[in-house]
Design a protein around this nucleic acid. Structure first.
Length: 608
DNA sequence: TTAGGGTTAG
């Protein structure tokens, strides 16, 4: 047998694989050695497993064809594609001659297989050996910077483009945009994007997706329009990112327009696009429209089922979410960790404590999905909301997986609802030990202390926040009026009609109070002036006020709704009204969930 | 010969 890595060709003619035949069928016939590299390349590309690759590689070595760089690079490439990086690297090291393609394939092989360390090490070797980096290698290295969120390194790689006088082609630019946005500096991503002389579809898609992901989905839609104006035709991947942006925006009119566009342009309705549309409709307030899409899908995978379960969950329809689970199993779909997060979340927000506990226990026993910290967090939330705080604490104490700030935050939130200051302090101590960077947790803690009148602790938490340079970022709300999207935050005065909006708001507050609504300012952020508290309680979302304004024109509605409307602790500050789908129902959205207020009852059972 | 973009939760 020839040594396929040292590439020593055999001296004598051997029985070997006939590259003309189908791979995997060994030809026993002797024939003269074909020396056409194309045959070996196509044989390599036709391999379906590692054994076949090694067989072809052996033949290539026997013939001495490894001396041909094109063939050798293809051997490297195919090993990397089948994740056989050890084989690829051993071969790479034995290659007597390497060209930029060899280096690029090796760097790319490591990058695609998430071997960040070796990818960077190989890239440094290129630079050290005096070879210039090229436009083929840079996207791979930038990909590592993106995946490891290494902004500093990403900037250094970007600098190499100028240092080596490289042309910023669409590949490098697209990965730079992607890297900067995933590293949280969307402005730098946009700078690269704006500087490109011409942008191809992928760069547009990356930029559209970047805005949606970093919480500026309205800009995604603006870019989508601009892209089409410039004559770039979107493909289905672009449409998925646009649908995702619309889901983030929660704007139903836009959602419908985009859905119509997808149908009109005959985009293939695959699982990914279908699932994205389910999510979009659900997040725009219509769980029914989401279900319609779900029912109409030809193929559904675990993501589609989980998305639908989650949709019912955050709309407060826990039972419907749970009904989907056995159907999912019947359809031969295996639940994953996210399916269980969605199920437990649905239970916790519909007060289905027993059902939640059952799922939690069966997920590992029956479905071999090991509970991670997120599942424990759902359970703490479930037990905590139901007032079973001690059980929640016992669960945490018995955990073998690493605890994170979200877990303690859930316990802290439950302590706030039930006014359990002792347990709150335990949770707070652990949160402070972890040094959570989530300002919401500190605000929560400060509020608990404030409610207990422990002002010294309030001041300590505030000091800590200042020292850690943490600031609560205000939530944004978007509202669609006549197909135009308006953006607001609490106390916002940037809207051209802000005077009219606040006048209407103040009028509504008066009506609310006349209707007997007494605001509970206990849970309003304590970092605002006292006189603003009541205002914030109502103005947490101007959208809420505006929609109330619209509803108030409907006969008899405002008093009935306002009398019965009790928003939960979270909603006091973060509630967002999405739309009034019918006169007798309004849907309120807080950070991640929806409340359906129908004839004075909320679909979410917790707060009623 | 080698390169870039998409779905579910928190």
């Amino acid at each position: 047998m020839a040594d396929i890595f040292t590439q020593q060709p055999l001296q004598h003619q051997q029985t070997f694989l006939d590259p003309h035949t189908q791979l995997g069928q060994i030809s026993e016939t002797h024939f003269s050695i074909p020396l056409d590299p194309k045959l070996y390349i196509s044989a390599l590309l036709n391999c379906t497993n590692l054994t076949q690759i090694k067989q072809v590689h052996t033949q290539i070595t026997i013939t001495g064809m490894t001396q041909n760089l094109t063939v050798a690079n293809k051997v490297l490439y195919i090993y990397a594609r089948f994740k056989a990086l050890d084989d690829a690297y051993t071969f790479f090291n034995c290659m007597k001659e390497k060209d930029p393609v060899s280096w690029s394939v090796m760097v790319g092989g490591f990058a695609k297989n998430s071997d960040h360390e070796n990818c960077l090490r190989t890239f440094r070797e290129i630079i050290r050996s005096g070879l210039p980096p090229d436009n083929y290698t840079l996207p791979f290295v930038l990909r590592v910077c993106r995946d490891t969120v290494s902004l500093k390194m990403g900037r250094e790689i970007h600098h190499l483009v100028y240092k080596y006088g490289l042309h910023l082609d669409p590949f490098v630019s697209a990965t730079l945009v992607d890297m900067y946005s995933k590293c949280g500096v969307i402005e730098e991503a946009r700078l690269v994007f704006d500087k490109m002389p011409t942008r191809d579809l992928i760069t547009w898609t990356v930029m559209i997706s970047a805005y949606a992901e970093c919480g500026i989905p309205n800009e995604s839609l603006v870019l989508f329009d601009r892209m089409r104006e410039e004559g770039v035709v979107p493909d289905k991947v672009t449409m998925v990112t646009v649908v995702f942006a619309c889901a983030k925006l929660g704007a139903m009119n836009k959602a419908k327009l985009i859905h119509e566009y997808i149908l009109r342009k005959n985009f293939t309705f695959n699982v990914i696009l279908g699932t994205a549309i389910i999510d979009m409709y659900a997040k725009c307030g219509s769980v029914e429209a989401a279900r319609e899409i779900f029912d109409g899908m030809r193929e559904r995978n675990v993501v589609s089922w989980s998305a639908m379960i989650a949709a019912y969950g955050y709309h407060g329809y826990g039972r419907k979410a749970l009904e989907l689970f056995p159907l999912m199993l019947q359809n031969g779909v295996t639940p994953n960790r996210i399916s269980f997060v969605s199920l437990l979340y649905a239970c916790s927000h519909s007060g289905l404590v027993d059902e939640g506990c059952e799922f939690f226990h069966s997920m590992w026993d029956k479905y071999y999905v090991r509970p991670d910290v997120k599942h424990y967090t759902c359970m703490v939330d479930l037990l905590g909301r139901a007032g079973r705080l001690n059980e929640a604490m016992e669960l945490i104490e018995g955990m073998t997986v690493e605890k994170d700030d979200g877990l303690w935050g859930a316990l802290l939130g439950a302590c706030r609802i039930h006014g359990n200051i002792e347990l709150a302090e335990k949770a707070a101590k652990s949160l402070l030990e972890i040094q959570t960077q989530n300002p919401g947790h500190y605000v929560l803690l400060s509020n608990i202390y404030a409610n207990a009148g422990r002002w010294e602790e309030v001041a300590n938490v505030r000091d800590l926040m200042t020292k850690m340079r943490l600031k609560k970022i205000p939530g944004w709300t978007w509202i669609e009026v006549d197909n135009k999207i308006h953006q607001f935050s609490v106390g916002d005065k940037t809207h051209p009609q802000f005077k009219e909006i606040y006048e209407m708001l103040m009028g509504l507050i008066k009506k609310l109070e006349l209707a007997g609504y007494v605001p509970d300012t206990n849970f309003v952020l304590h970092d605002v002036d006292e006189e603003l508290k009541v205002g914030i309680l109502y103005t947490h979302s101007e959208k809420l006020a505006i929609t109330f304004g619209l509803i108030s024109t409907a006969e008899g509605m405002p008093l009935r709704i306002t009398k019965n409307l009790r928003v939960c602790g979270d909603c006091h500050t973060f509630c967002k009204l999405v739309s009034a789908t019918e006169r007798r129902e309004i849907i309120v959205r807080d950070a991640n969930r929806f409340h359906h207020f129908k004839k004075g009852a909320c679909s979410c059972g917790d707060y009623w």
